[in-house]
Every structure is written in C-alpha cells, then in structure tokens.
C-alpha cells in the first residue's frame, strides 16, 4: 500500500525528514544557531528538541566557522551531522571549513576518509531582510569539486532530497529558499529519497525549455500557465542539483524544444545560467537551437531593502512571461 500522502509545508517536510533520519540512525544529529527551544530562525527544527533532546538538537554559539568545522570533524569521525546555517549569507563566515576542509578532505587523504556532513542554507530574497540576509550563493559552492549542492523546489523534494543527503557519504549543501518554507504540497509519510544529481521535468512542452532552480521553478510554472493561453507550450526543467549537474535531461529537453531560457534568482553573471548555457553550447543540443539562449537572473546589485526594489532585482513571473514570449517569437 502506498504511504499516506498529506499536504505539508516545505519547512514541515524538512522537519519530518530530519526526525525520520534521527529515528533511523543514532549518529544523525542537528547543530545550529537557535535550533533548540527557539525552533530555528525559520521554525524548521521547530519542536524537535522536545522529542530528541538538546544533545541531538544542539544549539551552537554564534560561531559559523567553528560550528561548521565541528560538524566536519564529527562527520569525519563517524557521526552524521546536519548543520543549519541561520542564513545562507553566513556561509561566508564558514567558507574555510566548507571549501578547504569538507570538500577536499577525502581527496587530499587519497580516499581514506569520507565527510558525510549535511549543511542547510536558508537562502534568497523576498523577506525584506536586505543585502546581508537575502543572497543566493549556491553557485559559489557549486564551483567546488567535492561538494554536492542541491536546491529542492517542492516539499516532496525537500524531504526526499534531505534524506538522500543524510544517506550520502559526501558533503551535501542544501539551499532552501526562505519563501518556499510556507509552500504546501503533497508529501508521503515515512522514508523515501529523491536522488541527488537528477533533474526533474516539471512540465512538458514543445516550444521552449526553461531550466529553473529553487523558487524560480514555481514562478516558471505560473508563467507557463499564462503562456499556454497564448499558445506557447513551455517545458520546465527543475535542475534540483547544481553539482553534479544532470546534463542529459537538459540536453534532451533542448533538443526537443530548440529554445533555452535559464531562470534563477542569484546574480545573473557567472552563475548557474552561464553554466547551463555553456554546457548546452558544448553539447549536441547546440545544433538544435533555433534562437540565442536567454538568461534571466538577479540584478547586478546587492538585494535592496525597499520591497518594490527588492522584487525588481530578481526575476518575477511577468519577467519570465515576457522573456519567454520574446524568445519564442524571435524578438531580440
């Protein structure tokens, strides 16, 4: 019999995944700032401390570098820590441990060790938190061999990919868009995994491939629904994992639609869109392209405080509609 499927929020789905992981394996524990009785800045850990105790839902001091290092060291020596950054922006304080240590340790030691650490990063803009609490830095970490970097876009994937991350022997960085935390969707009870490194076709279409990440998947779906009324049939690829990237799914989609648009919230330049575009330009799908590739990304500015400015700096549904229409109709 299929597991009971309920409507859960993205945050509840993550919380359920962490509880299942801790129930299944006593080596799994949570670390982070104010994740205990406070419940986490975004209430993702919620009341888990009541169920699992303060030893397994550990509040850390405000020490991102040290805390990340402790998680790396614990993972290296047999534990399975899940480390929550309060905001993904604070990864900047811990880059040493993430980039120099966690990512490289297995390689530097010739395969003698693994570092099964999971790090969770609440990311993105839209909460009025301004420039130091709103960034999308996933491409920074996606540039580092040794890390796996994922961006679940639905409650279902948030749970299944987190459980896949806990089971993974290598460091997995999970970027969770803060505006997704309240998004509801169907989530089965119990244990299941969604594979890391596999994109998902969220909507099939003929005229255009949109490769989207994280919250842009939903925005692209909304845009596609509007475009359908105009007779434009959009295919949407949810990249889900940015390292290792599922190239084949994107290539196959572009070969089918002959048009590619990349939509992502992070700063446009030198980002995921550049990587996907270049990958397609290098692939057999290049010959199938009927139009130049289009990237819709964040503005080349920090995220502003003013809500209208804030919205204007990242792609919104009308931007996607306009760009997709222009691309399909050959408007340059």
């Amino acid at each position: 019999m299929d597991a009971m499927v309920r409507e859960l929020s993205y945050a509840q789905a993550i919380q359920e995944a962490m509880a299942i992981a801790m129930d299944m394996d006593e080596r799994v524990f949570l670390m982070g700032e104010d994740i205990g009785v406070y419940g986490g800045a975004f209430q993702v850990t919620g009341d888990l401390v009541e169920r699992f105790g303060a030893d397994r839902v550990m509040d850390t001091p405000i020490s991102e570098l040290g805390g990340a290092g402790v998680a790396v060291g614990a993972a290296l020596t047999g534990m399975r820590p899940i480390f929550e950054f309060q905001f993904s922006d604070f990864a900047t304080l811990a880059m040493e441990q993430i980039v120099n240590q966690a990512a490289k340790m297995r390689f530097m030691l010739g395969g003698e060790v693994s570092v099964p650490v999971v790090m969770r990063f609440p990311a993105g803009s839209g909460t009025g938190a301004a420039a130091q609490h709103s960034q999308s830095l996933e491409a920074w970490l996606g540039h580092v061999p040794g890390l796996k970097v994922i961006q679940p876009a639905t409650p279902y994937d948030a749970k299944g990919m987190l459980l896949a991350a806990v089971a993974d022997p290598d460091p997995v960085m999970i970027f969770e868009h803060k505006l997704l935390y309240k998004m509801k969707g169907p989530v089965p009870e119990g244990y299941y995994t969604v594979p890391i490194g596999k994109a998902d076709i969220r909507r099939e279409g003929r005229d255009l491939t949109i490769v989207a990440t994280s919250i842009m998947v939903q925005k692209a779906l909304d845009a596609a629904a509007a475009l359908e009324a105009e007779g434009i049939d959009v295919e949407i690829v949810d990249l889900r994992t940015i390292r290792p990237m599922d190239k084949q799914t994107v290539i196959d989609s572009v070969k089918k639609t002959s048009r590619l648009m990349c939509v992502y919230e992070a700063v446009k330049t030198l980002g995921i869109g550049a990587e996907v575009s270049a990958m397609i330009a290098e692939s057999e799908a290049f010959d199938y392209l009927d139009a130049p590739i289009v990237r819709l990304g964040g503005a080349e500015t920090p995220i502003p405080y003013n809500p209208e400015l804030e919205k204007a700096t990242v792609p919104q549904v009308p931007d996607i509609i306009t760009a997709a229409r222009d691309l399909v109709k050959g408007v340059r």
């Binding site: 040290g66 805390g67 402790v70 060291g73 290296l76 534990m79």
Partner: peptide
C-alpha cells in the same frame, strides 16, 4: 574546529 568535532 575539526578536532573539536572529533571530540564531540
């Protein structure tokens, strides 16, 4: 910090 993690 890695040593502290190992001690944890």
């Amino acid at each position: 910090p890695i040593a502290v993690g190992a001690a944890l």
